[in-house]
């Protein structure tokens, strides 16, 4: 039983009024309570946000689906496993180690990374398994953080790493491990600096539920979902292309770039169409868009590249 009821949280972690706005602690409490079935689903702390120009025309997928249908193998390989098992993850305190080719390396507390007011960014989300959602993220541009730590001229790539904590992540325990831990991902520096690339801390205006990658996750909307690494604990600027988890698991199926591309099939299934989640049993397939519909914004990053070769 992975649920951890609220009373098991040490009293040291219960938020005093003075740090009432320390939303991480609040989040841990609410998340655990939700997992224990004590509170209704909308108990997460509200975030302060401002609207952005992205995604005003998109109709978001229902919140219950976004928070109950997840690939987060640290909590199990089933789609419902993360929502069932992630409630016990401690997300406060949380810090991110920033190292590698930067002028200002260091370990940053989450509070020092996340701006007070974040943006609403509603993005299309396309899974490599050919299903899709529309998710109203709350976040800020990764470029804000990277600029602060001052990448050196030699930095060409950004590597990311997810938490390893088998005590709280049942998928990292046991005899059978589907992937190597930690989960690692990477972007080219120009992709990482692109205004569409965000670090998200929330969805639907509230703190991220643990199963969606709390407290801090990457969102790169023109790439397949597995590139958008969850629960990030380390960001490293590198000169060489960093290893990525799914590429290590099956290099012929998952490339470093993994841009959404209807013309390049997965070796085992077509990527030409996708099934939107939330339409029920009779949900209609729809055509998949080049770069997941963000072609105007990002195509110039790949000018002259053979996208079949660099899939």
């Amino acid at each position: 039983m992975a649920y951890r009821p609220v009373h098991k949280i040490p009293s040291s972690e219960i938020t005093p009024k003075s740090v009432y706005l320390n939303r991480r602690s609040l989040m841990a409490g609410a998340g655990a309570a939700f997992a224990a079935g004590m509170l209704p689903g909308h108990a997460w702390a509200k975030l302060e946000t401002k609207p952005s120009k992205y995604g005003a025309d998109l109709k978001p997928t229902a919140e219950e689906y976004i928070t109950s249908y997840n690939n987060f193998y640290e909590f199990g390989t089933g789609k419902a496993d993360p929502s069932e098992n992630a409630g016990s993850l401690t997300t406060s305190p949380w810090s991110v180690k920033v190292d590698g080719l930067v002028a200002k390396p260091g370990t940053l507390a989450l509070e020092d990374i996340v701006p007070k007011v974040q943006e609403d960014r509603t993005y299309r989300h396309r899974c490599v398994e050919a299903w899709s959602m529309v998710i109203p993220w709350v976040g800020f541009q990764l470029s804000d953080l990277l600029t602060k730590v001052e990448p050196l001229g030699s930095a060409k790539y950004v590597a990311f790493e997810t938490l390893v904590r088998p005590d709280e992540m049942p998928g990292q325990k046991g005899f059978f491990q589907p992937l190597d831990w930690p989960y690692v991902e990477g972007l080219r520096l120009d992709e990482a600096m692109h205004p569409l690339t965000i670090l998200a801390t929330g969805l639907y205006g509230e703190e991220l539920p643990n199963q969606n990658g709390a407290p801090l996750r990457l969102v790169v909307p023109w790439k397949y979902g597995f590139k958008s690494i969850k629960s990030i604990v380390r960001i490293t600027l590198t000169e060489k292309e960093p290893p990525t988890t799914w590429n290590k698991a099956a290099s012929n199926e998952y490339g470093f770039y993994s841009n959404v591309n209807p013309n390049v099939d997965h070796p085992r299934w077509s990527q030409a169409t996708e099934r939107p989640i939330g339409g029920g049993l009779l949900s209609q397939r729809q055509p998949t868009l080049m770069f997941n519909g963000y072609e105007d914004e990002v195509a110039s990053l790949y000018t002259g590249m053979d996208l079949k070769k660099y899939f």
């Binding site: 689906y65 109950s68 249908y69 789609k79 299903w131 989640i277 049993l281």
Partner: peptide, 15 residues
């Protein structure tokens, strides 16, 4: 269960 909406976000795949 699929018809009654008891199979989660992707009832088709579950069925």
């Amino acid at each position: 269960q699929a018809l009654a909406g008891q199979l989660g976000a992707d009832p088709m795949r579950a069925l």
